[in-house]
């Protein structure tokens, strides 16, 4: 019995040694949204190397991914993020308001409204585009199944929703009744409503559900790259929205953890030539296209883009409660697919 116990202890110790992590000097936590996994995997490695040569210190960046709203909720509930890189301004605003750990003027602290990269909303369809989907009205054709995540929980889905709203506004010349009718019809074509952008992509590409996926441009390119250009095609609609996923330092957390210097360097590096190059390589549109490789830039289609600050939306402070708040437009128009 005793020998058994001793060998058990030795076994556990060996197991522990095998799985024990390497100890880093500084550890940062970047709380991000769903589709940025691949971007930050590449960027974190580049930043760690850069930081080592600059300061001689070792830094490890840990990642947490999920739907943007869910991630903001986690930070509000106490997740010790050093930086947040979310899909929406509204989600960072929510953290700022609820915790006071981020100053209200966070958007002005970094270049380009704190958005080192932008993206837009496009369609991903199956190879050969069997349903002939070219623009927004094609999504509500009889028999077309549309995959998009839940705008209540996914940042990407909110951009998708607003892009559709921008189309409807143009098509129906601002007739709100008709616009709501179109949006309601659009969501009646949605058979699966995932909570995050990545879940929706998985449903569409892996599970074979639906005829068209409305998603981030970067997510569509990534799906093409990961799962084969022989299976899917990207379709650029006539009008879309300029999505600006913002980043912010969580002052309250970095000051407590003593990681401010590394965290600030981390965010600044996103704007550096190398950061911008990686951004473009991972299918995001860089804030400074000059730093990106031409081949990467050539992949992006030219689209007519509205912005969130367009009078149609009036910025996130107005659009968020009007469209996605409890009892907002989305709640009013949403009727599930039958």
């Amino acid at each position: 019995m005793r020998r058994m116990r001793r060998s058990l202890a030795a076994g556990l110790a060996a197991l522990w040694a095998m799985v024990a992590p390497a100890v880093a000097d500084t550890t940062l936590l970047n709380v991000s949204y769903d589709p940025t996994r691949e971007l930050y995997e590449a960027f974190n490695a580049a930043f760690a190397a850069h930081f080592k040569t600059e300061t001689g210190e070792t830094v490890t960046v840990r990642m947490s991914h999920g739907g943007s709203g869910k991630q903001a909720r986690a930070v509000i509930d106490g997740l010790k993020a050093d930086v947040v890189t979310l899909a929406l301004e509204a989600d960072i605003d929510a953290i700022a308001e609820a915790t006071g750990k981020i100053p209200a003027n966070w958007r002005d602290r970094l270049p380009n409204h704190s958005a080192p990269y932008t993206s837009t909303i496009v369609f991903l369809v199956r190879k050969g585009n069997p349903q002939g989907i070219h623009d927004w009205p094609d999504l509500v054709k009889e028999g077309v199944e549309v995959i998009t995540p839940n705008p209540k929980t996914s940042g990407g889905a909110r951009w998708s929703y607003l892009a559709a709203w921008a189309y409807a506004s143009e098509a129906f010349h601002g007739d709100e009744e008709a616009m709501r009718g179109f949006m309601g019809e659009l969501f009646r074509h949605v058979p699966v409503l995932d909570t995050g952008a990545r879940g929706a992509t998985t449903t569409f590409v892996r599970r074979g559900i639906g005829d068209v996926l409305i998603t981030w441009e970067n997510e569509a390119f990534l799906a093409l790259k990961e799962l084969g250009p022989d299976k899917f095609e990207i379709v650029a609609p006539s009008i879309s929205i300029k999505a600006e996923p913002p980043i912010a330092l969580v002052d309250g957390n970095v000051d407590k953890a003593g990681t401010r210097q590394a965290a600030e360097a981390y965010l600044a590096y996103l704007y550096s030539p190398e950061g911008q190059r990686l951004v473009a390589k991972n299918f995001y549109r860089p804030a400074e296209p000059a730093f990106a490789d031409n081949a990467d830039m050539a992949r992006f289609p030219h689209l007519k883009l509205v912005t969130i600050d367009d009078p149609l939306f009036g910025g996130w402070k107005k659009a968020q409660p009007a469209h996605f708040g409890n009892g907002g437009v989305f709640d009013q128009i949403y009727q599930p697919a039958r």
Partner: peptide, 23 residues
Amino acid sequence: AGNIPYVSEIAPLLIVIRLEEFD
């Protein structure tokens, strides 16, 4: 499940979704 409100959204998932909506 597919997680569509009113169709295939179970009660425990709704709790999680409400949490994610800050509700």
